[in-house]
Structure formats: structure tokens, C-alpha cells
């Protein structure tokens, strides 16, 4: 057997580290790296997914922003009244939370179908598995960018105070994307093997929305002695910490170190699990789809 160094060029798909056994860290990392090199492919496909959805509509992807705006305003007016919050505070709070939530739920929901939906491509083309994940994340990132327009508009209307902590939005979004990637990968692999999971995941994701402080405000509940005990349970919800680290800089709210520490810890653990899954089940996905 000739020793095969990972001589994969920029254009090669699956062949890096071909000599290493299927279940090896080397192959898992090679898949992620090879997929990353195929940026033109998944970059194009991710855009195409978006264009496809709004094909032949006059406003096109602008509908993403519009539908997000409609939901944010409707929920904002309703829950703002329910919680007796001033609209100029509550609407930005809610819209920013929704913006982040849409990205997270997109990664989970699309993740649960990512390999199942791409069965044809997986069985016909020797592309790294990660290509499908990157395409999904890229598509969700484009959605995020469209939804972000709403935040800009709200900011121009209400002009709340921002300070230097606003810059933290960059590492926060980066962390969000990095976590979306492992999440989609793990959910994708597990769902491909166990086909009962996609509906279960869809139901749980819906539940997750309500236990994450998006329409309700954690600080307000935690300050209320009647419900503080229960509100604190939200800390167990990992999604909350990601919502907080992205939302706080966007609203000019004071930073809480705790959320950052938890988010970074989840990033490390999550990627550990994802890499383990990649190592053990990467080669099985083609058999399972």
C-alpha cells in the first residue's frame, strides 16, 4: 500500500488522507477542511436556496425582512401590552431576540434534514459531508443578514444608547455561527440514522422558543420575587446564553460575563461531540441516507 499523504488540492473532494482508516480523527478533520475549501460550491448553493424560495416574486429575498418585521411588530405590540412594557424598549428587545432565535432554530430544524434532503447529492458526488453543513450555515447567515435590517431600522427609529460594548457583537455572532455549525452537524447525523428524530426535534425546538427569554425578559422576571425562582431555571437553557451574548451589545445593555463563559464552554463541549460524531459516523451517513 503506497503511503498517501493528504495531497488534496483546492479542487479535490473526498480524497484527503485517503490512507487513514474511515474512523479516524484525521479523516474527520480532513472532511471539515476539504469542505471548507469548496466555498465556491456551497457559497453558490446557499445563495441559490434563498433565491429559490423567492423565485419570481417581485420583492424577492426582501420578503425575509418583511415577514420578520411583521412578526416582531405584532408580537411586540401584543406582549408589550401584556407585560406592560414601553414599546420603544420592548420592540427592539423582541426583534433582536427573534433575529438571534431564527438563526438558532434554523440551524436545528434544517440540520435535522440536512443529509436526508441531500441524499441524491451524497450518493452521486464524492463531496465531503461538511459541504452540506456549510451550505446550511451560509444560508442561515444570509437569512440573519436580511433580518438584521430590521434591527437597523428599529435603531434608526428609537435610537437607544450604544457604547463600546457594541463591538462585542462581532465575537458574539462568530460564537453563534460556530455553535450553529456543530449543532447542525450533530443533529444531522443523528437524524439521518433515527428518522423519528426530525419531528421530535421540531416539537422540542418550538418548546425551546418559549423557555428562552425572547418575548419575556429574564432580568425583569428574576427581579420579581414571586417568579424569580422559576425564572432562574432558564439559566439551564443553553440557548439563553447565546441569545444574551448577542442581544446585549446590540441593545447597549450591560454585559454579563457569566453568559460568555457558558457560551464558550458549550462551544468547546459541542465541538468535542461533533468531532467525535464525525470520526465515528461520517462514513456511515452515505449508508444511512
Amino acid at each position: 500500500m503506497p503511503p498517501t499523504s493528504p495531497t488534496t488540492g483546492a479542487t479535490t473532494g473526498v480524497t484527503a488522507a485517503a490512507a487513514a482508516p474511515s474512523r479516524s480523527w484525521q479523516r474527520a478533520f480532513a472532511d471539515l477542511a476539504d469542505g471548507w475549501r469548496q466555498r465556491p460550491l456551497w457559497g453558490y448553493l446557499g445563495w441559490q436556496d434563498i433565491k429559490q424560495r423567492y423565485r419570481r416574486s417581485v420583492l424577492g429575498p426582501l420578503w425575509i425582512s418583511i415577514s420578520m418585521a411583521v412578526i416582531a411588530v405584532a408580537l411586540g405590540v401584543l406582549y408589550g401590552a401584556l407585560f406592560q412594557q414601553p414599546i420603544e424598549e420592548f420592540l427592539p428587545y423582541l426583534a433582536t431576540g427573534l433575529l438571534i432565535w431564527n438563526f438558532i432554530s434554523g440551524c436545528i430544524l434544517d440540520g435535522s434534514e440536512v443529509f436526508i434532503d441531500n441524499e441524491g447529492l451524497i450518493k452521486h458526488l464524492a463531496a465531503p459531508l461538511s459541504v452540506h453543513i456549510y451550505r446550511l450555515i451560509w444560508r442561515q447567515a444570509i437569512f440573519f443578514a436580511h433580518n438584521f435590517v430590521i434591527w437597523v431600522i428599529l435603531f434608526l427609529i428609537f435610537r437607544w444608547q450604544l457604547d463600546w460594548t457594541f463591538l462585542l457583537v462581532i465575537p458574539a455572532i462568530l460564537l453563534l455561527v460556530i455553535n450553529g455549525t456543530w449543532l447542525a452537524l450533530v443533529v444531522g447525523i443523528v437524524s439521518t440514522r433515527f428518522r423519528d428524530l426530525p419531528p421530535v426535534i421540531a416539537a422540542l425546538t418550538q418548546l425551546l422558543f418559549f423557555v428562552t427569554p425572547i418575548v419575556w425578559n429574564y432580568d425583569i422576571f428574576a427581579a420579581n420575587p414571586d417568579v424569580a425562582e422559576r425564572a432562574r431555571l432558564a439559566e439551564l437553557n443553553p440557548v439563553m446564553h447565546f441569545v444574551e451574548i448577542v442581544r446585549r451589545p446590540l441593545l447597549g445593555d450591560p454585559e454579563v460575563l457569566r453568559h460568555w463563559i457558558v457560551a464558550i464552554a458549550i462551544t468547546l463541549v459541542g465541538w468535542g461531540v461533533a468531532l467525535l460524531f464525525m470520526r465515528n459516523y461520517r462514513a456511515r451517513v452515505a449508508y444511512w441516507v
Binding site: M1, P2, T4, T7, G9, T11, T12, G13, V14, T15, A18, A19, P21, S22, I122, K123, H124, L125, A126, A283, A286, Y287
Partner: peptide, 20 residues
């Protein structure tokens, strides 16, 4: 041969740009 299926037992080493 294209690397889409990796062998369940035994081994397959493919070197080169594959066009299936």
C-alpha cells in the same frame, strides 16, 4: 472507488481528483 461509500470492512485508498 469514488469514496462515496467507504468500505464497512477492509480498506480503500483513493488518490487523485475523482469525477463520478
Amino acid at each position: 472507488m469514488s469514496g462515496i461509500y467507504e468500505p464497512t470492512r477492509g480498506r480503500a485508498a483513493i488518490v487523485g481528483k475523482v469525477a463520478p
